[in-house]
Design a protein around this nucleic acid. Structure first.
Lengths: 236, 236
DNA sequence: ATTTTAAATATGTAGCATCATAATAATACA
DNA sequence: TGTATTATTATGATGCTACATATTTAAAAT
């Protein structure tokens, strides 16, 4: 058994986690009270709580006042998904980044986008189509709608120089973000932009971001064929 | 400004978060020391720390000893992805769940699977193919390899009754899980099982789970066309 | 027997004190 | 001038105490 060379609470978390893994505590089982565990490990209850909260946050344990702590039955596979800005994604894979603005127009949001924005009326928007390239090869084709009500100042930005992706993330932090991931067949037009054959299967990431209740942008990012989205490894 | 009706540290977290959103603290900026903030909000440093840690966990802030606290530049869109067992997924969508084991054989892991297991040799495995149905309609087709070295007792389980998915999650908690998400075209065979046209775009989720260094299982889950993977809404 | 009320109890929050640790800044030294 | 050493300092961890709050369990009232 490793001695505590990092921090006591992490140590305790790992001990408890180990007991769950080796079936000492089985799914559905109730764990001893924090105080008893604190006693066993000869530490303060607050330290145990720190450990327990960590495990509960990961979805391994469920905690209820009075009810005590139980091991989650049918636990999820819980992973965190970090979606970086596309430039960073490309650069971190060791490629040179290029960006190309294909289309830039001002029009009202169509019903579909308005729905994403959870609005009944048609918002004035900036509609952008752009290509993110890795070493000159098309990597992501994105179609983006930006609410001019929420972000009017974007009209003064030269979006052929900096991608809306980057400008927004740097200048308009969001309070909420809805994400959807799905597979689709790419259209003729998309295939042409991406330099691939039509009807290829591609991974699509759709995101809508908000600042409190105001929609900022909706973006549909079509990734190159074979693209793999890899969440962070989960657990211990 | 809402008064503290939940808990002080959450309140403080929201205040700080608000300042990031409204650009009081801009990306890259250094925040005041915890103690000063504690002073401002008239609370203990530990309470501020709780709030700060929470924001740091979400990826909004970066904290370093001595270096202080800074607002993350180029923040990720960080979401958590909970992948439930397929039965739960189907039932939570309000459908009746059925499970059908298509194939069950014992064979050595092919090179590809061995690679997923990070092994050079060929492990004895159980190879399973099964179908998860929602209201009788094919929902997920999974091809699974289970290491008989790590989980020998699975040989005594009647996998036509309970899905390996469920049995494993209930009986063999894992310490690590690698996930990959990608889009693919389904083959003739897959299309037949799923009751769809060949060459349809489908979302594929691949997972490998481990108990310490021993691989438990590798599964490739092919979802029904149009399936959307929806991570939990992120942030505040 | 059924509903209401009241205790008991396990976790949650919070404040305070103290030491640990990492990273920087300042200083001394070669 | 460049390098090694030593303060300084901001966050991290741990322990204690006290009180809050949600729930269950038990008792009491109807």
């Amino acid at each position: 058994m490793k001695t505590t060379r990092k921090s006591r609470w992490k140590d305790i978390r790992n001990q408890i986690n180990k007991r769950i893994l080796n079936q000492t505590y089985r799914p559905g089982d109730k764990l001893p009270r924090d105080e008893d565990i604190a006693n066993e490990f000869d530490c303060a209850r607050s330290t145990v709580q720190r450990a327990m909260r960590s495990l509960a946050d990961e979805g391994m344990l469920q905690r209820k006042r009075k009810g005590g702590t139980t091991v989650t039955t049918d636990p999820f596979t819980r992973t965190t998904l970090d979606i970086p800005i596309t430039r960073r994604d490309i650069e971190s894979r060791g490629h040179r980044y290029h960006y190309h603005l294909i289309h830039n127009s001002q029009e009202r949001a169509p019903a579909k986008i308005a729905a994403c924005f959870k609005q009944t009326h048609s918002e004035p928007c900036l509609k952008l189509e752009s290509l993110h390239l890795a070493d000159g090869r098309p990597y992501v084709y994105e179609r983006r709608w930006i609410s001019l009500t929420t972000v009017p100042e974007i009209q003064n930005v030269d979006l052929s120089e900096i991608s809306a992706n980057e400008w927004l993330v740097r200048n308009r932090p969001f309070s909420r973000c809805d994400v959807q991931i799905h597979a689709s067949i790419c259209t003729e037009k998309e295939a042409e932009y991406m330099g691939i054959t039509a009807n290829t299967a591609v991974l699509i990431l759709e995101r809508t971001t908000w600042i409190s209740e105001s929609p900022i942008t909706h973006v549909r990012a079509l990734h190159e064929p074979g693209y793999r989205l890899i969440p962070n490894g989960s657990m211990s």
